[in-house]
């Protein structure tokens, strides 16, 4: 998935504008559900809820998904 498409889709799911790789990201219980859904749908992968809870940034989320899944 192209990075820009991912930022845009993540922003839509979380209702946050202008997300980028360096953006801070702290997920609530509700937004964790959204991210699990997004990742399942787009990467056919399931992320541990406690890992998502500990996230601090968009780049951290990309690392959990696997950087090999993203293109410029």
């Amino acid at each position: 998935m192209k990075k820009q498409d991912f930022f845009s889709e993540l922003g839509d799911y979380l209702e946050i504008d202008n997300l980028k790789e360096s953006s801070n990201l702290e997920l609530t219980s509700m937004s964790i559900l959204s991210v699990i859904a997004l990742v399942d749908e787009n990467f056919d992968k399931q992320l541990n809820a406690s890992d998502l809870k500990a996230l601090k940034s968009v780049s951290g989320l990309m690392n959990l998904i696997g950087v090999e899944n993203f293109a410029e």
């Binding site: 219980s29 964790i32 699990i36 859904a37 399931q46 541990n48 809820a49 406690s50 998502l52 809870k53």
Partner: peptide
């Protein structure tokens, strides 16, 4: 909720 959702999927 997150883990229950994961389990469901």
């Amino acid at each position: 909720g997150g883990e229950i959702f994961n389990f469901t999927l």
